[in-house]
Amino acid sequence: MTTPEPHVQPTRYTVNCLPEDGGLNSHVFEITVEYRGNGRWAVLRHGRCLGSNGEWDYELRPSEREDEWLANHRFDLDTALKLAKQAAPNVTVNGFTVTDALRMATERAEARP
């Protein structure tokens, strides 16, 4: 018997307007695009799922997901990445926008000796 060739499938992408280094805690601003099977992807942020209408909804349990909900919250990869990139500049964390975080990081860097 021959050993089968492993299948490799990317299952998660991270979309973020902040650099991953620089002490910004950029992970709190990230949006993820995650594979959900059958060629469909979800756009997620802190337990919420982006719908085709641009609204964030709580991701339902699999047993509660009806066809209409799935049609509005699952996308092909290109669409999911496009939606995540469009949403990323608008992420706000504790009242701080992406722009605020970038400005504060620049100010800190300029203040260092």
Rank of each mutant, 00 (worst) to 15 (best):
residue 33 V to D: 00
residue 32 T to E: 01
residue 26 S to I: 01
residue 56 W to R: 03
residue 15 V to F: 06
residue 77 L to N: 03
residue 104 M to D: 14
residue 18 L to C: 04
residue 78 D to Q: 11
residue 73 H to I: 08
residue 41 W to S: 07
residue 39 G to S: 09
residue 63 S to R: 07
residue 87 A to P: 11
residue 19 P to Q: 02
residue 16 N to F: 05
residue 16 N to C: 13
residue 102 L to T: 01
residue 58 Y to Q: 09
residue 34 E to K: 10
residue 95 G to A: 03
residue 43 V to Q: 01
residue 15 V to M: 08
residue 9 Q to P: 10
residue 3 T to K: 12
residue 38 N to S: 12
residue 11 T to F: 11
residue 99 T to F: 12
residue 98 V to Y: 03
residue 98 V to I: 09
residue 67 D to L: 03
residue 20 E to T: 15
residue 70 L to F: 02
residue 54 G to A: 09
residue 55 E to R: 13
residue 19 P to G: 00
residue 98 V to E: 06
residue 41 W to G: 08
residue 36 R to I: 05
residue 67 D to H: 01
residue 5 E to T: 13
residue 100 D to Q: 07
residue 42 A to K: 14
residue 16 N to H: 05
residue 76 D to S: 04
residue 66 E to V: 12
residue 102 L to P: 01
residue 95 G to C: 02
residue 5 E to R: 11
residue 69 W to V: 06
residue 92 T to I: 11
residue 3 T to L: 10
residue 54 G to Y: 05
residue 13 Y to H: 12
residue 19 P to Y: 09
residue 82 K to Y: 13
residue 14 T to Q: 06
residue 7 H to W: 05
residue 102 L to F: 05
residue 22 G to Q: 03
residue 19 P to H: 06
residue 10 P to A: 14
residue 100 D to S: 12
residue 93 V to D: 10
